[in-house]
Design a protein around this nucleic acid. Structure first.
Lengths: 200, 200
DNA sequence: ATTTTTAATGACCGTCAAGTCATAAAAAAA
DNA sequence: TTTTTTTATGACTTGACGGTCATTAAAAAT
């Protein structure tokens, strides 16, 4: 007798609408009404699936993490140094859509610094990313391609932070693509071979 | 006959109070009343010095830029590679107070992505920072300490972005000091000498 | 002391958006 | 078709905060 809906599908639909609304109006300015409109629903309906706006935001962020990690898991272990360089390069050259997502993500996190939960979730994601880079480094190290005495775990985490910086700057400040490409290539060059004429 | 006050000093006092209030309550949660209370003034008084909350925020950000740039200008041109390494290290190991400031700054910028003006101001600051690093690199390059073919302008800007990433991660995610120090040292090591066993 | 002009105050107003809930619609079963 | 249960709706409530302004306080000059 009862009307039945697929709650998971409905949540996904709302999250999707929220992404669009956040990118269109900005996270801070996007109202629940905007999201509802985007989803083709009434505002009250959203509250049947997410008790608070904050819950919706959190679900969106989690969906994003899952999405990014799926993309990462497609990257194979690098055979050669050039493979690794290509992977770094790929990671740091977001397309227009990804840039908008990064910007949205930045806005969400910035506006939610009070939420310790979210901060922890992001910290854990960044640690996983660091471990991911560390794995790639380990693969190269096994082949003897890397300098002796390299702390791959710490270096991997450093790469996560530094490339986060690059991508953030790309999305917020460095709107000139050509200029940014040069910057990234110099960054990768420095990390691979250093900037010095000879080792210290 | 008239009562007279030093408007500049009053503005500075309010900005100071805003800094404290933003760090205490978080930027988003800090109300004009909180700032007034912190400054020992009534809310209405704030509006005699700043027409809008946004204006106060902007003045605070500008004060910060001035402050940071003053600190930067104290750094001399590096004589040796070790000097440069020390400067990078110093830049990336914020003390507790600076960490709180970085976090506050992150929150301000994140919550104000809509304000194109602010974004431009920050972008310009980051460019100045990039040029600052580039100068240091040029000083070393003149002494023949750097790899041939290094684009110092682009590398300087890359350093600004990457160390921004590190400091941001330090302030938001990497609360373990010891761990962070290792990460920074690996990052600096990589940038100076690269991670490869031999040049590609 | 008085006057005059500017500064400070905080109760008040208007706005605005999150969240609620009585009512209506949908759809599954009988 | 009717019943029954769940889902959808959007007008309404509620609370909050930025910004205002009539009133009061301060202090400089006479």
């Amino acid at each position: 007798m009862p009307k039945i809906v697929d709650r998971a599908a409905m949540k996904a639909r709302i999250i999707e609408a929220a992404m669009t609304a956040f990118q269109r109006h900005g996270y801070v300015s996007a109202k629940m009404t905007d999201i509802a409109e985007e989803a083709g629903l009434a505002k009250g309906t959203l509250y049947l699936y997410f008790k608070r706006k904050e819950d919706l935001t959190r679900a969106l962020v989690d969906a994003f993490f899952a999405h990014w990690e799926a993309a990462l898991s497609e990257m194979p272990a690098p055979e050669k140094v050039e493979d690794f360089a290509a992977q770094l390069r790929y990671s740091s050259l977001p397309d227009g859509q990804s840039q908008r997502e990064v910007r949205m993500f930045f806005e969400i996190l910035g506006s939610s610094t009070g939420s310790e939960d979210l901060l922890i979730a992001v910290a854990q994601f960044q640690d996983r990313l660091g471990r991911f880079y560390a794995e790639k480094l380990d693969a190269l190290a096994e082949k003897g391609k890397l300098r002796a005495g390299l702390d791959t775990a710490a270096t991997g985490r450093a790469l996560a932070a530094m490339f986060d910086g690059l991508v953030l700057h790309r999305s917020l400040f460095l709107t000139d693509s050509a200029r940014y490409v040069v910057i990234v290539d110099q960054a990768i060059g420095a990390i691979l071979s250093g900037i010095l004429a000879e080792a210290v």
